[in-house]
């Protein structure tokens, strides 16, 4: 029983950055922008978070640095795809290559070649007084770190903004029919750019979660596809914040199971298969799901005739 509680605690812990990244993706994709730079943004966040925290000795500075750097990368991506009308998937690949080089290069610039890997203390668990004493749930849900709690708060906020406010109406309309939005006197490209920026902030913090909360160090393999999983969660969650939350938790569980089996060992099933589990899950779920409410103009560049 305790094993299962530990497993679930771990699952919730691992789901946080995926949910956060997917929420950013939801905001951007609702305006019609596929954030194919998400993998690069995660990596940048992980790097900037680590560097900021290591140099200042302050977690908050780390997360702030990750947020800003994530936003900057997103702005670069947004500028090229929205204003220079470049292809979103292609640009995403370019950003991924660039940021891989950039982060590794600047890790070296900032830290030189350390004799042993640099480490920091990971973000501590913040037990919520009272609630954390509830059996099972107390440990699983209320003995997590602050970023996790904030992520949970953001889910309803994003939901509210998207479905209940004028800004949300504009965001949704941009993804469905940008021409109509333009005719209504709203600058489509500005809305898309802003949405991508916000998505970048989310992605940056999500990336930093891996370096600051999970392992307490940085290397270039730290993200290895997690950004893309967040991207997939946004799809599977039907571009809905609540969907992102649910699928985020599902993928958190699949990651936790892999980690757990590897740690326990002796199951007879090779550990590589468990590592591959989340990725296989994306493939299977994308193939099985029939009904998607894809924003009609997702991925299509909006070219404004002038």
């Amino acid at each position: 029983m305790q094993n299962i509680i530990n497993l679930l605690t771990r699952a919730i812990f691992m789901s946080t950055p995926l949910i956060l990244g997917a929420l950013g993706e939801v905001i951007a994709e609702r305006t019609g922008m596929m954030m194919c730079a998400v993998e690069g943004i995660f990596l940048t966040g992980a790097w900037a978070g680590f560097a900021g925290c290591y140099l200042s000795g302050n977690m908050a500075v780390g997360f702030l640095a990750a947020l800003i750097c994530g936003m900057l990368v997103a702005m670069l991506y947004g500028f090229c795809t929205i204003y220079l009308t470049q292809h979103q998937i292609v640009m995403g690949t370019a950003v991924a290559i660039l940021m891989t080089g950039f982060c590794t290069f600047f890790y070296r610039v900032v830290f030189g070649i350390p004799t042993s890997p640099l480490k920091i203390e990971t973000l501590p668990v913040l037990k919520i007084p009272g609630l954390c004493r509830i059996p099972v749930i107390g440990q699983v849900l209320f003995s997590q770190n602050i970023i996790t709690y904030i992520t949970w708060l953001i889910v309803p906020v994003v939901f509210y903004v998207i479905y209940k406010t004028a800004a949300g109406l504009t965001i949704r309309s941009c993804g469905e029919n940008p021409e109509a939005v333009e005719v209504a006197g709203i600058n489509v490209r500005r809305i898309r750019f802003l949405a991508v920026m916000v998505g970048g902030c989310f992605g940056g913090v999500a990336g930093a979660y891996y370096s600051l909360c999970n392992v307490g160090m940085y290397n270039s393999e730290i993200i290895s596809g997690r950004g893309w999983i967040a991207f997939g969660i946004c799809f599977l969650g039907n571009w809905n914040p609540v969907g992102a939350l649910l699928f985020g938790i599902l993928f958190g569980i699949s990651e936790a199971v892999g980690i757990y089996i590897k740690a326990v060992g002796g199951s007879g099933i090779p550990s590589e298969l468990f590592s591959a589990l989340p990725y296989m899950l994306v493939i299977v779920l994308t193939a099985l799901r029939k009904q998607f409410n894809v924003p009609a103009k997702l991925g299509a560049t909006y070219v404004k005739e002038d």
Partner: peptide, 26 residues
Amino acid sequence: IQQHFSLVEAHTVTENIILGTVKGKI
């Protein structure tokens, strides 16, 4: 009124009409 209507088909009539004229909470 454009020849090809500028309407968001997935949205309601009201949502289409108030697009761009409202602020804050709807």
